[in-house]
Simulated scan of single mutants.
Amino acid sequence: METVLQERHANKVKSGRPPALSLGAQLLMTLEFWREYRTLFHIGQDWGVHEATVQRTVVRVEDALIQSGKFSLP
Rank of each mutant, 00 (worst) to 15 (best):
G44T: 03
T30K: 09
Q67G: 11
A20Y: 07
A20P: 03
S15D: 11
F41N: 14
G69N: 08
Q26R: 11
F71G: 00
G48K: 04
R60I: 05
L28T: 09
V59M: 14
S15T: 10
T39W: 11
G16Y: 02
A10W: 09
G24M: 02
G44R: 00
S15M: 06
P74S: 08
R56V: 11
N11K: 07
G16H: 04
N11S: 10
G69E: 14
M29T: 01
L27G: 09
E7P: 10
E36A: 13
A52K: 09
S22I: 02
L5R: 03
L65Y: 02
G69C: 02
L65S: 09
D63A: 15
D63C: 12
K12S: 04
Q26T: 01
T3W: 04
R38C: 06
I66A: 07
G69H: 12
V49Y: 00
L73M: 14
S22A: 06
E36D: 08
Q26G: 05
W34G: 08
Q45F: 02
F71V: 01
W34S: 15
I43Y: 00
R35I: 03
H50W: 07
K14N: 12
R17L: 12
A64G: 04
D46I: 12
T53M: 00
I66H: 12
V54C: 04
Y37L: 11
E62N: 15
E36R: 09
W47A: 04
L21K: 05
